[in-house]
């Protein structure tokens, strides 16, 4: 009983692997780097009218975090193959440990910022914390 199920499972995995390779060959994923322009475009596409102020790119350039003008919120954008995912988060949702940044979202892996951007984020988080406490 187990053996046919195992064969079925392994056949399915082999078929998935082969089809994924074919897709990767025929439709190579663009090496999306998040630019300021892309972030603005994604905010607009999501109906968010606030302009990003300063944009910090991650080490991999697949993520970016930006302060949103006129708000105490942050926009976080991730490039996923040929698509993007966006979150608008409050300061309380962001956890920074050195250069590593997490938005405490189960579907959103933590990402690393270059040292200078990590410093800037630390300052942002401190300043917005001050705003909230004020």
């Amino acid at each position: 009983m187990i053996s046919p199920l195992l064969i079925l499972f392994l056949s399915a995995m082999a078929a998935i692997f082969a089809l994924a390779l074919l897709v990767a060959w025929l439709y190579p994923a663009p090496n999306n780097q998040i630019t300021d322009e892309e972030l603005k475009q994604q905010l607009y596409a999501h109906g968010i009218t606030h302009e990003p102020e300063q944009i910090l790119q991650s080490v991999s350039t697949k993520e970016a975090i930006a302060t949103l003008g006129g708000t105490r919120q942050f926009a976080v954008l991730r490039a996923l193959g040929d698509r993007y995912a966006l979150r608008i988060v409050d300061r309380s949702q962001i956890t920074q440990t050195g250069a590593s940044v997490s938005i405490n979202d189960y579907t959103w892996p933590a990402f690393k910022l270059p040292a200078d951007n990590a410093e800037i984020l630390t300052k942002w988080l401190k300043s917005t914390k001050g705003d909230i406490n004020a």
Binding site: I16, Y27, A29, L80
Partner: peptide
């Protein structure tokens, strides 16, 4: 239409998992 390898692989893997669990 459009295809993306990781997306397609994730979809097909979800399908295989679903078939096993539903069995």
């Amino acid at each position: 239409g459009q295809y993306e390898a990781k997306d397609a692989a994730a979809s097909m893997f979800m399908g295989a998992g679903s078939a096993m669990v539903n069995a």
